[in-house]
Amino acid sequence: MLDRRQFVAGLAMLPCLPRPAAASTGLRVAALDWALAETMMALGHTPIAIVAASDWNRFVVEPRLPSGIADLGLQPEINFELLASLKPDLILTSPFVQDLEPVVQRIAETLRLSIFEKGTVPLARPRALARVLGERLGHAEAARSLLVTAEHTFDMYRERITAIAPPPVVLVNFIDARHVRVYGGAGLYQNVLDRIGLVNAWAGTTNYWGYSTVGIETLATDRDLRLIAFEPIPADTRPTLQRSPLWSRLPFVRAGHVSVLPSVLMFGAMPSALRFARLLVEHLERLPR
């Protein structure tokens, strides 16, 4: 068993951690979905091209996108001329781009991996993604070690959460000054909360994808909780809310239990799950108790 220090050290290196190039197939892979791209990168296999590369650093944030990865453009509008000229060996697709498969199959073999699945064990999909990609790309060992490290990391976070015993959390994106998207259900964030033992205070329903759009007044409660908002937050949200008695007198607002975290890819895979857990736990630990 690794101790906690080693874990923290390992965590910091996570994005570039396992590099067992020995068994690598050296395939030139294009990933048409960010979750697949980040899983690949966590396995030490850099894709040659991804979709919407220019937005990566804004929405996925970490790991920063290495230079030299070709930008295939918007997900619904992939640059096929460019993709073909890169002569990939394998193209990773997801159900969101499955309509493009007949087209990209003219360029290279495709592998479709589902990123989202409802009603399974927490984080079952990200795990499966890592395993399948590991097998296919010749990084089976790296995948195994990624998963082992991930489980250890989550276990450790779980302990740290138990230690600080934070109040339940509500995870939101502010859409404008009057609406939030609140997360729960089968989404990645909820999966992580379940895995590290944090309680989601949002009791309302969510859609198939694990979130719901509601008016901010729906968040009013006299319970103690911590509101965690992901960036970006629209500029006029804060001043508007501060002038609203409904908001400013909320017990958790008065108590200052409102946090802002950097953006985390909602439809992400294991790296995003780990990053979210890290950001969350580290943030909660930093708070005065």
Binding site: L74, E77, I175, T213, E217, M266
Partner: peptide, 22 residues
């Protein structure tokens, strides 16, 4: 499509919501 694909929050202006907090 180009700028806000991930959040798609701008849809909300297209169909007005009367939700109020003050």
């Amino acid at each position: 499509l180009v700028k806000d694909r991930v959040l798609a929050s701008l849809f909300i202006w297209g169909s007005g919501s009367l939700s109020q907090q003050s």
